[in-house]
Design a protein around this nucleic acid. Structure first.
Lengths: 156, 156
DNA sequence: ACTTTCGGTTGTATAGTACAACGGTTCTTT
DNA sequence: AAAGAACCGTTGTACTATACAACCGAAAGT
């Protein structure tokens, strides 16, 4: 063990913990999200956030990015549109696609949801040191980044 | 900025990243789990694992632990029982409760699911150093532990 | 004994999702 | 240019996970 001090846990044990804890988190996530901002269902929230970040994207992009079926995305978007949170504009060059944009109301609601969501996390993480927060954030980024490349061939 | 060395990311930024990345993870978790072990739906898997760990627990315990409605647990258990993976034994002392135990088939299927699940994680994390794995695991434990106490008063 | 509490099931409703079939568009190939 | 393939999105259908509310039977409190 590289001569370091003894308590280096075996890789397997750590992986097992990671697996368990991520699973535990996932199980709770939806309910938790619903509590934080009941107005904007979790998935809609996520999609809307992505649409805003990307400043105009297509439904297919969303489906690919989130590993969702296009029908799912289609319905989610229908919901968001019904709520008046997104707008679809036909693309001039390609008549098949519709470019998605948040409406003003959508942007507003998204900002509110993000704020309360962030506040909830701030609260939960209030006892963490800045270093630990940075470390945790970095690990999560790394973990998720690994996932988005090696996709199960399902979406190619 | 507080005079410390420059590259300490502000807490807010880290929290925001954490929030985003955990959300991203949660969104994918179900689909991913379904791919890893299609035979045992995610929640059933989780419940079954808990039943085994606890070596006999009640439906209510599961509901409390996972923040699920008892009706949800009831139906999940019905499914598991139908599949022949759990057994309910009436408690001798209290005639209301039924103590849950995995059947042999349940234990077998659970072990298989755990194995493939763990393998998937091992694969995904294969490039991580043991130190990073340990660190990530520790952060996740800490994060989730924080959540299980301060529960939203919904379940009390 | 009467009421309350507890453990669990069942009825009903909703969100999120997938798969398959389809209708238009655009691109390729001949 | 006509035919076919690939692509974008919608709609029909079905299933899982979930919640809430109403309920039943058993146990505990008074």
């Amino acid at each position: 063990m590289t001569g370091a001090d003894a308590q280096q846990p075996p890789r397997e044990a750590s992986v097992d913990v990671i697996q368990r804890e991520l699973t535990a988190f996932a199980r709770r996530a939806r309910a938790a999200a619903a509590r934080v901002h009941p107005e904007l269902p979790l998935v809609s929230y996520t999609l809307l956030a992505h649409i805003e970040e990307q400043r105009g994207c297509r439904a297919t992009d969303l489906a690919a990015h989130y590993l969702l079926d296009k029908s799912t995305v289609s319905r989610q978007l229908a919901g968001l549109e019904k709520l008046g949170f997104v707008e679809r504009r036909p693309a001039p060059d390609d008549h098949r696609v519709q470019v998605l944009h948040p409406t003003e109301a959508g942007a507003k609601v998204l900002a509110a949801a993000q704020t309360s969501r962030l506040a909830a996390y701030q609260e939960r993480l209030k006892d963490w040191s800045a270093d630990d927060l940075a470390g945790f954030a970095a690990y999560l980024l790394r973990y998720n980044a690994a996932g988005t490349s090696g996709l199960p061939d399902q979406h190619r």
